[in-house]
């Protein structure tokens, strides 16, 4: 590992102090966490626009499949269960990182990835079923917006899985350092964010689609 520099390129935003969580101690790393929060703000707005579009065209089914006819309650409930649980285990991995417990960190990462894979598997299964029944995104504006909104979330989750796996490899190889601690923290921020987005998809898309 490289020597911890006393300062970032600007050189002064804070001294290394031990009363902060590990991922925040090195100013070179904590500035990246701030940057990532700002990125999440832009990503939230991205989803906001997709939600707005979905809400505008959700009833524009053009005589094709409707929300009520394609949303499968056991399917999306199970997806929700997997994703929300993975967010919890992701949180446990952050906790393990702060406790300096590398083994627990790697294990919780593995569990989180497994749950994420289960979520993606179910979603792909759901999409394939929809398409097979003629509910393709070329069919109507509603389906275009549905597949794009939920699919954008799904592709985010996929990116998150690859990213978490890469982070796992780095932790396994390098241990818990200020750099890997920051990486663990940031990938978990991303993961929790996707969880929050899913809560809105669950409510705005699936639940409302079944009852409204």
């Amino acid at each position: 590992m490289m020597a911890m520099p006393d300062a970032i390129y600007g050189g002064h935003s804070g001294v290394t102090s031990s009363d902060k969580p590990l991922e925040y101690r090195d100013p070179n790393q904590s500035v990246k966490i701030l940057g990532f929060w700002l990125f999440l703000a832009t990503d939230m707005l991205l989803f906001g626009c997709l939600f707005a579009t979905y809400l505008v065209v959700r009833t524009h089914t053009d005589g094709g499949p409707t929300a009520r006819s394609i949303f499968d309650i056991p399917g999306f409930t199970l997806e929700t269960f997997f994703l929300l649980t993975s967010s919890f285990t992701g949180g446990l991995s952050t906790l393990a990182m702060r406790n300096g417990n590398k083994k627990a960190l790697v294990s919780w990462f593995a569990v989180t990835i497994a749950l994420g894979l289960a979520f993606i598997g179910l979603e792909v299964h759901e999409f394939i079923g929809d398409v097979a029944s003629g509910a393709t995104w070329e069919r109507s504006a509603f389906l275009s917006a549905f597949f794009t909104l939920v699919g954008t979330h799904g592709s985010h989750v996929t990116v998150g899985l690859v990213w978490m796996f890469l982070t796992l490899l780095q932790v396994a190889k390098r241990g818990i350092t200020p750099i890997t601690a920051r990486k663990v923290f940031v990938v978990n921020l991303y993961w929790h964010f996707l969880d929050v987005v899913w809560v809105f998809i669950f409510t705005v898309v699936y639940l409302s689609g079944r009852v409204m």
């Binding site: 524009h60 069919r139 109507s140 275009s144």
Partner: peptide, 8 residues
Amino acid sequence: HFFTILHG
């Protein structure tokens, strides 16, 4: 069909 005239 987000912004087309057809299909909603």
